[in-house]
Amino acid sequence: MQHADALVAILMLAFAAAVLGCLWRAKRGRVPYVRQIPGIASLEEAVGRATELGRPVVFALGHSGLQAIETHAALSILAHVARLAARLRTPFVTLVSQQDVYPVAEETVRQAYTAEGVPDQFKAEEQVRFLSDHTVVYAMGAARIIEESRAGCALFFGPFDFTSLLMAEPGARLGVMQIAGDPSLFQIPFFVCTCDYTVIGEEYYAAGAYLSADPAARATLASQDLIKAVFAVLVVVGTLLYQFHAAWPPWLHEFLKALKIVGPRP
């Protein structure tokens, strides 16, 4: 089994302290300014446009299972979009490719409709659809639904694979407003080409807190910047140490060796 070494443990505790520190400041009323994330802020515009056109909102979840944190970030966005669709009485379809995510997605959309006071309008088997756990079949199914239902907007959130272009290209060809979010970088170029807005990297994880009504959750976004600052300092310090490693005093080498940052002296 894998266990944290001293450096990883120290970093994890420091990062946890940063998140909890931001939370504590928020509880005392100091909520930091959160910049606008265009891809997330435009979700309302996308659902609004689908409502005006009288066409459905299609939300495709990525290929990660329930144990992946990417899935939970996508479900947070799904909850927000489902509430918007329920509020505006816009037809809403969620596409799922993982069996274990299916019941959670269904419950998320059900809760959104209940929260908006229209639980009777939620039709589970029509609005939350499992297509396939085979990625090509899923992509083909999603493309077909976007094309045949003449979607008002199409949203793709979660980790996707080489089939991302297959899913997003029909919508781009038909002029459907599309927003995509993928935590990994490999499919981003395809989404950039085919979607109106793309949510990348940390923005993807920030979306859940950004959309949350809880100020404490929004406050923890500042901790992401603190974590990045720690990494930036580590990169600079590591580069300097590497450049001048010949001049290190012996105690510094022994200390870093004990933390498993460096190996034996060359």
């Binding site: 946890a16 998140v19 939970h72 940390e202 923005e203 993807y204 959750a217 974590i227 990494f231």
Partner: peptide, 14 residues
Amino acid sequence: LIGACGGAFATGLR
């Protein structure tokens, strides 16, 4: 990737 790691950590903790 570094930004995403920080985001994943904060999201996990949340």
